[in-house]
Design a binder for these strands. Structure first.
Lengths: 240, 240
DNA sequence: CGCACGCTTCGGCCCTCACCGAAGCGTCCG
DNA sequence: CGGACGCTTCGGTGAGGGCCGAAGCGTGCG
């Protein structure tokens, strides 16, 4: 491997370097944990992964150097989060690829309890997932606001719906307005991209749903059930 | 890491195992080479990667066992190809993530020659890429056949266009009809998914373009220029 | 039939890297 | 100001894995 570098070699080396960041179980656990879109401290991640703080510190160094994580120092804390939506999508895609067959197996009661809260509704980086995310996506599709049969895009009626609901769709950079994200509990695509993020933010801001516990799970409020029913015709039963 | 397995640990372990398949430079080079969508023999890949046949044999074993590659034995040859479109998309996504900034650098004349043929037109697994792929995608968009502003989906007019052109859009399984694939030379999305694959196959079958050399590059024929101009209004200048 | 060829298996080498505990550094609080 | 706390650096250890050449096995050609 000592020959002069060709373009092809450089691409392969870059790909290998990127993949190696996720090729360690502890770093993979960090990436999955950070998929909730929030910033974690190094200590929280160390406890979550059950490794020494020193070990995790080295992992964070690599993930930050590799561009997958962004860090923010506050006092004696080191907060890290996924660098951007691109990275989040990549981790999601990788996790979705591995999921087939691995996710469903008997769990203990306590875990299945937490699991079912996650399955009901959760955030996936910056948008809604779980049965909640699917229900919203399906409702948008059924009402002709989102088109899934020929790809994945909002319709003109969909654009108007977001406007009427008072949900602004700012477009920063080249991020797509609507994108499909494979839901790993439901095994079906839910709405991601700018529209998914705006909808999730609005749902949290307007009190349609609230975060429960310190994890990614969210719970739909009564006001949220009313709003989703009125605006999208979502059945309350689809959220349980 | 000896505690009882939780669901979370299993997900992280699976993600790490998947990523580790691409975390080696030789295996990464194999995956990138196989992105042309064709089947390579083990020996071809070994020469391509400049490693001993025995080394490459072990790599292929891991990639096949990991589900990334499908193999087919014919006589004393072992042909391998990417397992399916999902895997191809994953490799593309990973490669696109690493590309920013790494792809453009001065090359030798010979390499830049090969590079410019690749940049003009090539296959990306099973669809068209390079300036050719972008030109087609842009033409579809300009004619209102493909919608990119609110996501990525064919329009009803687009569905009719495929029908009128005699290009069948069979939908095997859950693969999306239209999907955006980031072009690593043009840095913009081109058409992938069922429609992209059907269009590419039709272009090759109808002689709109032909493969040149033994690599991924393709060349638009005169008949292809006429057809693309008539059917989509693609300017010949956009293909050079 | 026998040799050439493509691929695989095996043994051994060496490098990489995840892990830990101890020690050090900076921040925050009492 | 001193101690608790969060994080980082460092040295050492051990496991894993990529690499090769040699040898083995099966296929296909002359």
């Amino acid at each position: 491997m000592l020959g002069r570098m060709t373009t092809k070699d450089a691409r392969a080396a870059g790909l290998a370097r990127l993949a190696s960041l996720a090729a360690d179980e502890t770093r993979a656990a960090c990436l999955l944990a950070l998929l909730d879109g929030r910033a974690w401290t190094a200590g929280e991640l160390a406890r979550h992964c059950r490794v020494a703080a020193s070990t995790l510190s080295e992992h964070l160094g690599k993930l930050v150097a590799g561009g997958l994580l962004a860090e923010e120092r506050q006092g004696r804390h080191r907060y890290v989060r996924l660098a951007d939506a691109r990275v989040a999508q990549l981790v999601e895609d990788l996790a979705a690829q591995v999921a087939p067959g691995a996710a469903e197996r008997p769990r203990t009661l306590r875990q299945s309890g937490a699991g079912s809260a996650m399955a009901r509704g959760r955030t996936c980086y910056d948008h809604l997932a779980g049965r909640l995310g699917i229900a919203v996506t399906d409702a948008l599709t059924a009402r002709g606001l989102l088109r899934q049969d020929t790809g994945f895009a909002l319709t003109d009626a969909g654009l108007r719906w977001f406007g009427a609901a008072g949900i602004a769709l700012d477009r920063p950079g080249r991020r797509p307005l609507a994108r499909a994200c494979l839901d790993w509990t439901e095994r079906r695509p839910h709405l991601a991209g700018v529209a998914g993020a705006a909808l999730c933010r609005h749902a949290l801001d307007a009190g349609w749903c609230v975060r429960i516990g310190s994890e990614r799970a969210v719970k739909v409020t009564e006001a949220g059930e009313r709003a989703l029913s009125e605006l999208l015709g979502v059945e309350a039963a689809a959220l349980r």
